[in-house]
Amino acid sequence: MALLEVSGVTVAFGGNRALDDVGMSAEQGRITGLIGPNGAGKSTLFDVVSGLRRPSSGRVRLGGREVTRLGPARRSRHGLARTFQRLELFGRLSVRDNLLVAAELGPERRQAEHCVARIIDQLGLAEVADSPADTLPTGVGRLVEVGRALAVRPTLLLLDEPAAGQDGEETERFATLLRSLADDGMAVVLVEHDMGLVMSVCDEVHVLDLGKVIAVGPPEVIRNDETVLAAYLGDA
């Protein structure tokens, strides 16, 4: 059974449908890619899943439980964590404190310091651990967002363009990290414009265009899908 199930989600901003009857799912131990041209509705879908935006119709289920009516905090207790494309760091706190706030809210609150130290180490954030988050370059900030999400020990992790601004070597390291998270049993949903990364780490890819799911399948199929190519070319 899928850990995350979204069905029939519709969101409209004024007359413009950002999401139109969208369904998707994500499973434990797998990395699900969510791609699509700019404005396709990817971030909006994340807002719906994480409870920051109410859809006008549709349902969200987490671990088999209906969460459509729950607020973001309650959903996080069901194992959900996310990062933000437009960074939402706690700017005045140090990187360490950013992670600490999360860890203290999560299931590991008793060993919060320990948990934070481990993540800082895992993500290679030691150098900036004591800098205020709003002084960081965006690329590092994205990594801190990932670390902060990990600090609540999620079972489902939503990543909104976490690798934007990373160079080749950093992206490779990031891919390894994602694989190891999935291998530990986490369900990861990855929104990313770096096709190389998406195609190399994802087990399955969903393609959104203009608020509709236009294709679902393993990376090697998606890579050659005509509608997907058309959507991206139309965008360019």
Binding site: L52, A73, F90, G91, L93, A102, E104, L105, R148
Partner: peptide, 20 residues
């Protein structure tokens, strides 16, 4: 820490499970 976090980003604080 929580107060500062809440001010800096309510969205992030809430999605981490914080009660506003």
């Amino acid at each position: 820490r929580r107060l500062i976090a809440l001010r800096d980003s309510e969205a992030a604080y809430a999605t981490l499970g914080g009660n506003l």
